[in-house]
């Protein structure tokens, strides 16, 4: 039940989180610019706290947070497992063996992390608040990407910014109209499939797979969570 932090759990939790995020950011930045070995830092940030908790060394989470993490881990397992079976089937289509079943490890890792993080945040904050924050963050990241890509081209910057705008609008409508926002997000996710030709992901295109995981999965996941949450609220109100 208790956090085992001498009554000051919140501060210790924040410290662990900050260190983990710093390690992940440094690991990714150095890993892709200096040497791939620096990805070890990112791994330390991503999995280090969990390993220490499992070993009983770190007791910074209470029972609710532990359950949210376990639930998120189970969902990540289901998503990664289902994805891998689909990839094994599509890559080996027409054959009767597993000789061609290779899938980039980074893709599977990204899928597991996205599903784990999304699930944990939705469990922890609740659907409405998590949707608001996820959509704002998503829009902010995409916006930053647009500015970095087209910062010197005003027309392109304006046009690309229009694509980001719906995420900020939907972040606010998620609180007031969760079901309609859910429908809009699922429709938006379907549109991204065609806009970015994400169907190529299922043909084994690694770039499309990564865009599919980083873009389609969060949008459709948030949309489905809002749809489900809106239906529950209506059922509760009717009962």
């Amino acid at each position: 039940m208790t956090r085992g932090t001498g009554g000051d759990g919140r501060r210790v939790f924040s410290r662990v989180g900050v260190i983990a995020i710093a390690l992940v950011a440094a690991g990714l930045a150095l890993g892709f610019t200096v040497h791939i070995g620096f990805l070890a830092l990112a791994a330390l940030g991503l999995f280090g706290p969990g390993l220490l908790r499992e070993a009983g060394v770190l007791g910074d989470r209470d029972e609710f947070e532990r359950e949210a993490a376990r639930y998120a881990g189970y969902r990540a397992y289901l998503a990664a497992g289902a994805f891998l079976v689909v990839m094994i089937m599509t890559k080996g289509w027409g054959s009767l063996n597993l000789d061609n079943d290779s899938v980039p490890a980074s893709i599977v890792l990204a899928l597991m992390l996205v599903v784990y993080l999304m699930s944990y945040l939705f469990n922890y904050w609740g659907t409405t608040r998590a949707s608001f924050r996820v959509l704002l963050t998503f829009g902010a990241f995409w916006g930053a990407f647009v500015v970095l890509s087209h910062g010197t081209e005003p027309v392109a910057l304006l046009m690309e910014s229009l694509v980001v705008l719906p995420f900020f609008v939907l972040a606010f409508t998620a609180r007031r109209w969760p079901r309609w926002t859910g429908v809009a997000l699922v429709a938006l996710a379907a549109y991204t499939l065609f806009f970015f030709n994400l169907q190529r992901a299922f043909a084994g295109n690694a770039g499309s797979m990564m865009v599919f995981i980083l873009m389609f999965v969060p949008i459709v996941g948030t949309g489905l969570a809002l749809l489900s949450s809106g239906r529950r609220e209506e059922e509760d109100a009717a009962s």
């Binding site: 039940m1 208790t2 009554g7 759990g9 939790f13 209470d62 029972e63 947070e65």
Partner: peptide, 9 residues
């Protein structure tokens, strides 16, 4: 604080 969990819990 009284029961040793977070406010979110």
């Amino acid at each position: 604080e009284r029961v040793g969990v977070t406010r979110q819990t």
